[in-house]
Design a binder for these strands. Structure first.
Lengths: 197, 197
DNA sequence: CTTTACAGTTAGCAATTATTAACTTAAAAT
DNA sequence: ATTTTAAGTTAATAATTGCTAACTGTAAAG
């Protein structure tokens, strides 16, 4: 509760591990690198986790669940369909800032890692996310708010994907501070396009 | 020229290496994995490249240069500003399909790899891409075709971002076939938004 | 006061990695 | 016909990896 101290080592492992995956990639996710980052030896890691994989499982579950809730929170606000969708984006962006872009990166890394356990967790997250968002989009289409010619399921994925792309831009330009400087601009572009009316 | 045979081993190394990075991630990019894929031993790799890093450099340069040219090709067609921008997206999508999504994934991997040489190549690519596209967008704003309240540089990155988002969905859902099933739908979403008019 | 459990250490193992060296072989160049 | 070269092999290297075992100190529980 003071400036920074007194996170348990277990907690530090998870945070350091996630940071390594996000900032340096899976290849640098090693017991030694994690241990160095928190000031212990690599063997100490195994006092808190049975394996490196189990750390990954914990990281995925923890970050993914933050993201899962974002759609539910937006829906719970009982807004118009258009505002609900905008709110989904806002919630998303706020999770993104909070987790420093971890979720899309974790998804992307582990969807290709060949580890079935990781993939299954991620896949079921993406599936449920997509179906929730698709339903909102379909409702919007019935109400005439959303263009009838957009594919709800594809567009749902576009919501997550766009955010991942923002992380890429952020990293590539070595920016600091918030990943998405102007959330409303991004939302507006996605919703109304870039063409003047 | 026949069905498939007679690529040089050097060429096979580059193709297999890129495929591994794209489909399985940097962690699996090892001499042994590449060698297995093309039916030689790991030591044979070093007859063609001095190091694994040099393979990566070649992969990045090769795929990135294909992508760099896409804006130039679109500009060379001398279309209206709006059509030029749409054509940029089309060119982009066609490079994407041709390279099986490699560029965005390579960018994703190497933007975080911590290797300065890799990062620099990518950075200068993104920089030049962004400035070319920004200029077109600014021209569009002066002509009143593009919304004045969008940031040209951010929007340039949105062009890449949308495509990355599609690759993200493609990978996450382990799809096969074209990455972007309906290019004109995506282009239309970017230009006119998802909201009905 | 002693015991126990926890959280760390050092040391080490077996596997894997990037890379090199020494050898083979077949084809091209002389 | 011989030499050279290219492109492969096997075998070895040093470093790094995930993980375990055996040890140490400290603080709470009895």
């Amino acid at each position: 509760m003071s400036v920074e101290e007194e996170l348990s080592t277990r907690e530090k492992i998870i945070l350091a591990g996630a940071q390594i995956i996000v900032e340096e990639g899976l290849r640098k996710f090693t017991a030694k690198n994690i241990a160095n980052k928190i000031g212990v030896t690599d063997a100490a890691i195994y006092k808190h986790f049975p394996s490196l994989d189990s750390i990954i499982i914990e990281i995925i579950n923890r970050y993914i669940s933050k993201c899962s809730q974002s759609v539910d929170r937006a829906v719970a606000m009982n807004l118009s369909t258009e505002e609900t969708l905008k709110q989904v984006m806002r919630e998303h962006i706020s999770v993104l800032e909070e987790t420093k872009g971890a979720v899309p990166i974790l998804c992307f890394e582990f969807s290709r890692s060949g580890n079935k356990k990781f993939f299954d967790i991620l896949h079921s997250f993406v599936d449920s996310y997509k179906s929730k968002l698709s339903k909102i989009l379909e409702k919007g289409q019935q109400e005439g708010v959303i263009r009838k010619d957009v594919n709800p399921s594809e567009t749902a994925m576009l919501f997550v994907g766009l955010i991942q792309a923002k992380v890429f831009a952020y990293v590539m330009e070595r920016r600091t501070g918030p990943i998405i400087a102007n959330p409303e601009e991004l939302i507006s572009e996605l919703f109304y396009g870039i063409i003047a009316r």
